[in-house]
């Protein structure tokens, strides 16, 4: 089956839009509804919809299973970066402050975001982790085959 240009275009547009939206939600999350989780979910759902549209347009079974070793691919690294950010954003407080996760804020306000501090990095870490995790899971779910097909392929 050939790739449908129209669906391809619209999904790419949609994904870009969702990605921007997710960043927006992430950045404003500290003050308005949004934040790392919501942003991450929106961002991930963009990529997930890309998967589904691709799945719809791209019929051929190409590979038996995706590359799945944790850390061996982009999303795995993203997951790593995200959780590391979450972990490290509290370290400053542990080493130089009062306690783990003790917040530190940069004094001046950055336009569009507001104040920047360790909780912000924390939130970004959450965002990255959520995106990476959801997409990793989706990739697995989208790539594993129906057992029936597998059994048919093996010629039984």
């Amino acid at each position: 089956m050939r790739e449908n240009i129209f669906t391809s275009f619209t999904t790419r547009l949609m994904v870009s839009f969702l990605f921007m939206l997710s960043l927006y939600l992430l950045l404003r999350g500290h003050n308005y509804p949004g934040g790392g989780f919501i942003g991450g979910l929106v961002g991930a759902s963009g990529v997930v919809s890309l998967y589904i549209s691709r799945a719809a347009s791209n019929g051929a079974v190409t590979r038996n299973s995706p590359r799945i070793r944790p850390g061996s691919n982009f999303w795995g690294y993203l997951m790593f970066i995200g959780i590391t950010m979450v972990l490290l954003s509290g370290m400053w407080g542990l080493l130089f402050g009062n306690a783990y996760l003790d917040a530190w804020w940069y004094t001046s306000i950055i336009p569009g975001i507001g104040k920047i501090g360790t909780p912000f990095f924390f939130d970004v870490g959450v965002y990255l982790t959520v995106v990476a995790v959801i997409i990793s899971i989706t990739r697995v779910l989208a790539n594993v085959k129906n057992p029936d097909d597998i059994y048919e392929e093996t010629g039984e």
């Binding site: 509290g90 306690a99 996760l101």
Partner: peptide, 8 residues
């Protein structure tokens, strides 16, 4: 009892 408050 050792106590710490996360995030102080």
């Amino acid at each position: 009892v050792l106590v710490t408050n996360a995030g102080a």
